[in-house]
Structure formats: structure tokens, C-alpha cells
Design a binder for these strands. Structure first.
Length: 384
DNA sequence: AAGTCGTGGAA
DNA sequence: TTTCCAAGACT
């Protein structure tokens, strides 16, 4: 095909080898000692990579230790129930990961651990990044694992323009990453192990080439870093445009069951599909779940909530507002019997509760629907 | 392609 | 207080 074949599209071999040498040296000196780097067990590496998806090392670390202590291999996790699998993920977020990993563990225990990027990619929950990461770290396959860190490092080092969500940007980064992993693991002297190379790139992004306030003074690549040399470190990579907030209408209501407990239900349509919330609208930013529920319940319905009933909660992000929501029954003061325990429920599971049925029940019990309220929400720019 | 899914921490 | 967004995958 015609078009993009300019010299800038490829990394000169010598240049790449120099970059690789400097980065690998830096990595050996500055790498963090992390438990999943201490032993090369594929299962643990897989678990760590899945846990690290959109999650910081510091947040993931304690969960990781507990998880691998309880499920030291794929077989043990496969034997757990689906509920246990999700519960073991409690507090980590993105609970779909837990279900997918559970299924993957089943496949692994039946068919063996895939030892290639392509084989790993076929497992549920294993995308392009995770497949490459596990293949390179656990099995030494020379494939580039491109995550947010790598995109940022390469965008700055090579001056890659354009918003990071653009196809052209991703393509260019992919080219660079593919060429570099080849050079670093084959052409460079000494050749780096594929897993070390990928982790070095990511570690640099995590410790030095950070999104905000990068530590360029300590960067092994600054001598040839386009962004640094041109004083554009803060501008690269370009962020995708943010959507404008729009008003949406929410149908809300209140349900009380026979024991006087309050059930909060969700609205039905996009863009906040699946959102459960307090009657009357979203919680205030920064409010604790209990405080918000207490406030709304008292203000709107004169209910006094009893203390002592634990309420697991979920937060939903809409224009980065935290909306605290309650998919559970809450205990109401005066109720006899034990306080209601919040059953631990993952958002995936909540999605299967038919909103229509809940709304119907709400109307039957509460008598009428509360008036719609306005709420900021994310919508694609041109939708009314 | 654009929307969705969670949580915690930093600035 | 508000915004950003972190070792993404999936639809």
C-alpha cells in the first residue's frame, strides 16, 4: 500500500541498541523488588498481570499476596466456586476480571498452560497486553507488551503525536514497540530477556517517565528523548478529548420490603445504564455510603437507619463524580431481627437484575414514582 | 469506535 | 474540591 513508509517510521538499529542498553542497565539498578518478580511461575505471573490491569502496584500488592496464598495454582482457583472467585477479588474493582480469570483457570487446568502469546490470547480476560506480558515474562517469547506506560515512554522518546486513543497513534507505538523488542532481545549487546525488556519499559514509565512531573533528570533516555529535548514532556502524549457533561433524566423511587428495609433501584437507560442510586439522585461527592444513605433516607422518607448493619457499596464514576450506590437492602431502625448483612455482589451480577421488574415493584410499594431529577452524565458529544 | 466496568491515591 | 488516571478487556 502507498503512504507511510518514511524513514522515521523505523528505529535505526544502532539507535535502538543504544536505547536498549541504557534502559536495561537502568532497570537492573532501579527495579523494584516485587513478589511476582521473585519466581517465574506462570500462574502467579498471570494472576499478577490480570490484577495489574488498570490497577496500581501498591493497591494490588496486598491482594496479590492473599490471592496466591489461597490459590497457589490454576487448579486450586478453578476448584473454587464462581462466588468465591469474585469474593477473592473484593475491593479490587473491575470484577469481570475475576470471573474471566476463573474461567481461564478452568481451561488451564484442563488443557495445560498456554506457552505462547497466541495461546494465551485465547483465554478469557487475556487481551493483547496481558498475553504479551505473560508470554514474555513467563516463557521468554520476544513479543512487545504495550501498556499505558509503554505508550507514554515511547510517545515521549520518539515524539509520537496525536491523542492516545487514535488509531494512528496506537499503530505507530505498536511499530516502535515491535521493533524495539526485537532489537533489545536479539540485536543488542548484551541481549535482554524479553520479559526484562518489557518490564524495564514499564518500570521506567512507572518510576521515571510518569504522567505528571516526570523525573527526567534521572532518565537514562533523556539524551535522545524528543519530548525532553524539545521541552514538550508535559504535552506528550496528548490526552483524548473529554466529553461534555449533559443533563439526563433519572427515574427514581423507593422500595420497602415487608421488614421495612429500603431497596434502591437503578435507572434503565444509557448513559448511566445499570446505575443504582439513592432515591432522588446521586450522593454527594466524598460522602461515605452510610452518611449519604442516612441523609437521603431521613430527608426524603423520614426513615432512621439503624447502626450496625454493614453496607458494602459501589461507587460509580460519572464525569469523575463519585456516585455511591446501594444494590442492597438497608436495615431500618425499629426492625426486629438481626441487622441485614450486605451481601457481597459484583456489578456484573447486578446487571442481570431486570430494571423493569424493580421499577414495577417500586411503583407498587411506594405508590408513585418520584419526579425525574437532573444529573450530570457522560454522553457522546452530539447526543441530545 | 466509543462506552463500560471500580477503586485508591496524588496533585 | 476536582481532576486525572493506573501493568486493559470486552462489546
Amino acid at each position: 500500500m502507498l503512504g507511510n513508509f518514511s524513514a522515521s517510521a523505523s528505529v535505526p538499529r544502532r539507535d535502538g541498541a543504544r536505547l536498549a542498553r541504557a534502559l536495561v542497565r537502568w532497570f537492573h539498578e532501579h527495579r523494584r523488588r516485587l513478589p511476582f518478580r521473585e519466581d517465574p511461575d506462570p500462574w502467579r505471573i498471570l494472576v499478577s498481570e490480570v490484577m495489574l490491569q488498570q490497577t496500581r502496584v501498591e493497591a494490588m500488592l496486598p491482594r496479590y499476596r492473599g490471592f496466591v496464598a489461597r490459590f497457589p495454582d490454576a487448579g486450586s482457583f478453578a476448584e473454587a466456586s464462581a462466588d468465591e472467585a469474585v469474593a477473592s477479588w473484593s475491593g479490587l474493582g473491575y470484577y469481570r476480571r475475576a470471573r474471566a480469570l476463573h474461567r481461564a483457570a478452568g481451561e488451564i487446568s484442563r488443557q495445560g498452560f498456554p506457552r505462547t502469546e497466541a495461546g494465551l490470547r485465547a483465554l478469557p480476560g487475556i487481551g493483547p497486553y496481558t498475553a504479551a506480558a505473560v508470554a514474555s515474562i513467563a516463557f521468554g517469547e520476544p513479543v512487545a507488551a504495550v501498556d499505558g506506560n509503554v505508550r507514554r515512554v515511547l510517545a515521549r522518546r520518539f515524539g509520537v503525536e496525536g491523542p492516545t486513543d487514535r488509531a494512528s497513534f496506537r499503530r505507530r507505538i505498536r511499530e516502535l514497540a515491535d521493533q524495539l523488542v526485537r532489537i533489545a532481545t536479539q540485536g543488542a549487546d548484551p541481549a535482554a530477556a524479553p520479559g526484562d525488556w518489557n518490564q524495564a519499559l514499564m518500570e521506567l514509565g512507572a518510576l521515571v517517565c510518569t504522567p505528571a512531573a516526570p523525573r527526567c533528570a534521572g532518565c537514562p533516555l533523556r539524551g535522545r528523548c524528543v519530548a525532553f529535548l524539545e521541552g514538550r514532556v508535559a504535552e506528550l502524549p496528548e490526552r483524548p478529548e473529554r466529553r461534555a457533561p449533559v443533563a439526563v433524566r433519572l427515574a427514581t423511587g423507593l422500595v420497602r420490603d415487608r421488614r421495612g428495609r429500603v431497596l434502591l433501584f437503578r435507572r434503565r437507560r444509557s448513559p448511566m445504564r445499570g446505575l443504582y442510586e439513592l432515591p432522588g439522585g446521586p450522593c454527594r461527592v466524598g460522602e461515605t455510603p452510610r452518611k449519604a444513605l442516612t441523609r437521603e433516607a431521613r430527608a426524603r422518607y423520614g426513615l432512621v437507619l439503624s447502626p450496625g448493619s454493614a453496607l458494602p457499596s459501589f461507587r460509580h464514576t460519572v464525569m469523575d463524580q463519585r456516585l455511591t450506590v446501594y444494590p442492597f437492602f438497608a436495615a431500618v431502625a425499629g426492625e426486629r431481627g438481626p441487622p441485614v448483612r450486605g451481601r457481597w455482589t459484583a456489578p456484573d451480577e447486578l446487571d442481570r437484575i431486570p430494571a423493569g421488574a424493580i421499577l414495577k415493584k417500586a411503583l407498587a410499594i411506594a405508590g408513585s414514582e418520584s419526579p425525574p431529577v437532573d444529573c450530570r452524565a457522560l454522553m457522546s458529544g452530539n447526543t441530545p
